[in-house]
Amino acid sequence: MPGTPPPPQTTPFTVRAPASSANLGPGFDSLGLSVPLYTTLRVTPQATTQVVPLGPELDGTPADESNYVYRAMQLAATRAGRPLPPARIEIETDVPLARGLGSSAAALVAGIVAGNELLGRPLDDLAVLDVAAREEGHPDNVAPALFGGIVVATLDKLGTHYVRLDPPAHLGVTVLIPDFELSTSKARAVLPKEYSRADAVHALSHAALLAAALAQGRLDLLRHAMQDYIHQIWRAPLVPGLSDILEEAWKHGALGAALSGAGPTVLCFHDTREPTAPLHAYLHGVMKRNGLEGRVMDFPIDTAGTLVDRDA
């Protein structure tokens, strides 16, 4: 019958949403890619609501309806105009928190998708993206977390719009994840309120070149296209060694380098046909010179985005 809402889900299911790296240099608040680290929800419909954070990454997070994941599930219910059915929600993540790898976006997207699933999927993918982007205030992390791959997206009063790109052949990601946290609010607070026309033109031209280079697989252009004067130079004092990496990583095998989101993680692109040992050695050396510890990891770009397993 037209207009009849779908019935709620009555059997257990699992939702898995990936981490993400936003901006990629000049694509401030509009460009990102997904990384194969995941936030996973196991949802079991039942008579009462239980929120169960699991694992060391989630120590200290609320085990009640104030949990961010549960509040994200409620966002789906609000958009759908229906009450959220009760369920047991188990939450796990291997996305490091406050590191610039989209931990909040992964939790947000996983929660909205889980809430939508629990309601019987009244919202389509574009509505899910719009709910997530409006909650975050920008789509650069939530779009790749939802759709996977590389995503260019905009958010305005007319809606949320995106183009998803499959990663170019042979493009891999190396991330340097320092062992300290940096809040997005602190990283945003150092940005200027106004920019010069020259900086605006630089940002627009380089963001356009980066999107075109990624679309056409022009790996040779990434180092030039990833230059940025909008946010990285202002955030560099918050991330020791960042300026060196942005200027020098290409000498050690990186195709290009950028601060991942608000940081402190730094992302380097690499050619998967080439060894990454020299790049790893360089990045570890930068950390050591700055008195830091952390991890250097190689990843493919996640292309699946958020997945729902209804056979859980």
Rank of each mutant, 00 (worst) to 15 (best):
P86Y: 13
I91K: 03
R99N: 05
L101E: 03
S103H: 04
I112F: 14
I89N: 00
I112N: 07
P85W: 07
S104D: 00
L101K: 05
A110P: 01
P83C: 14
L108P: 06
I112K: 05
S103G: 10
L101W: 04
A87F: 02
L84R: 07
A107F: 08
V109S: 03
S103K: 00
D94A: 15
S104V: 08
V109N: 00
P86H: 10
A110Q: 03
P96S: 06
A107H: 02
R88L: 12
I91D: 12
P83S: 13
A98E: 15
L108W: 07
L84F: 10
I89A: 13
L84W: 08
G100I: 11
A87K: 05
V95H: 05
D94C: 14
P85D: 12
P86L: 12
A98P: 01
E92W: 05
R88D: 02
A110I: 00
A105N: 11
E92F: 03
P96F: 11
L101P: 06
R82F: 11
D94Q: 14
P96H: 09
D94Y: 04
L101I: 11
V113C: 08
I112G: 11
A107G: 15
P86Q: 06
I91V: 15
G102I: 03
L97G: 09
L108N: 08
A105W: 08
L108Q: 06
I89M: 09
A105M: 08
R88S: 13
P96Q: 04
V113T: 10
G81A: 09
V109D: 02
R99V: 13
V95L: 03
E90M: 09
R88C: 13
R82I: 03
R99F: 14
L101Q: 09
T93M: 05
R88V: 01
P83Y: 14
A98F: 05
S104I: 07
A107L: 05
S104T: 01
P85V: 08
G81E: 10
E90A: 15
A105G: 13
V113D: 06
A107E: 01
A107Q: 12
R82G: 02
E90I: 09
A98D: 08
E92A: 15
E90N: 10
A87D: 02
I91M: 03
S104A: 14
L97E: 02
P86A: 14
G100C: 13
